[in-house]
Design a protein around this nucleic acid. Sequence first.
DNA 1: GTCTAAATTGATAGAGGTTCTCAATTATTT
DNA 2: AAATAATTGAGAACCTCTATCAATTTAGAC
Lengths: 154, 154
Amino acid sequence: MVEDSTLRSPGRRLTKQRRLILRILESRRDHPGALEILEEAKKVQPSISLGTVYRNLKVLAEQGVIKEISTLGEGSRFDAQPVPHSHLVCRRCGKVIDVPFDLSETLDAEVSKQTGYLSVSHALTFYGVCPDCATEAERKRGWATERDEKSEEG
Amino acid sequence: MVEDSTLRSPGRRLTKQRRLILRILESRRDHPGALEILEEAKKVQPSISLGTVYRNLKVLAEQGVIKEISTLGEGSRFDAQPVPHSHLVCRRCGKVIDVPFDLSETLDAEVSKQTGYLSVSHALTFYGVCPDCATEAERKRGWATERDEKSEEG
DNA sequence: GTCTAAATTGATAGAGGTTCTCAATTATTT
DNA sequence: AAATAATTGAGAACCTCTATCAATTTAGAC
Ligand SMILES: [Zn+2]
Ligand SMILES: [Zn+2]
Ligand SMILES: [Zn+2]
Ligand SMILES: [Zn+2]
């Protein structure tokens, strides 16, 4: 639960739309995308628009209050959980689950030192085929077919 | 340098366009996107189309010959370097450079075991502001301003 | 080499996902 | 309360990427 003072950073105004979007994200563990957030926000404020959702997600990410998760293909998803962790993305349905493992932040400083890049952070993302998406044959074999898979690094 | 036998996997035919796209990617270290690859491919075969580039990048990634890199915002970039490594993406210009560090592949098997997901792989991506994009003030301070940054996890 | 079947291409339209524009509204400062 | 600047809602626009389809090319059989 982020306090209002954090959200009222210089040059920013805390609107009810912004607060609503953050509350929705804080209440969920399924890493929703912009459209899913819009859908839930409309239950509270039917007039809210998609552009407002995108704009606020961007501002909240700038403020470091939420994280943007790339799913390689589909649109971005978002996460307001404050504890650092990794993600496991299904290559077929795009579903994102948490993996309770992360690298030390000292690694970021190390990369910054070696490259000269500023404000270095990192994202560790796993990709796989979730049990719901795997075929019966694949489950038996223990691995998904290469066909219709993609090899990713991102 | 990948051999033709690898590229002629079952149900696949090795066209000169496919080979050209792979050769271009193998010759570069700057992780180009589809448009940049198209541009260079046209120098050899002016009639080649963007759709062909996208289709072939997808097939080559399926074959495990190249990797797709997500840059969170801009389009995907691609990499044909065979040695596992991480990437450092500039938050402002999208430039991608290599970081000679990666996690053990045994971690993928561990995640697979714990989650039931099949064919698990991973991507470790660092984000930062490159020296070209940082302002003078930011360089002196040693960190980039929070404003117009995004906090990412993907 | 010739023939056949299937994969691939080029061209173009189309489908998301995300950003931009701008007048009207609202949050903060004085 | 008034002034100032950020934000909103609506919609058009944008960008990346995918789908479609007739024409072409590859790979394998003869
Ligand atoms: Zn799935
Ligand atoms: Zn998460
Ligand atoms: Zn840069
Ligand atoms: Zn690389």
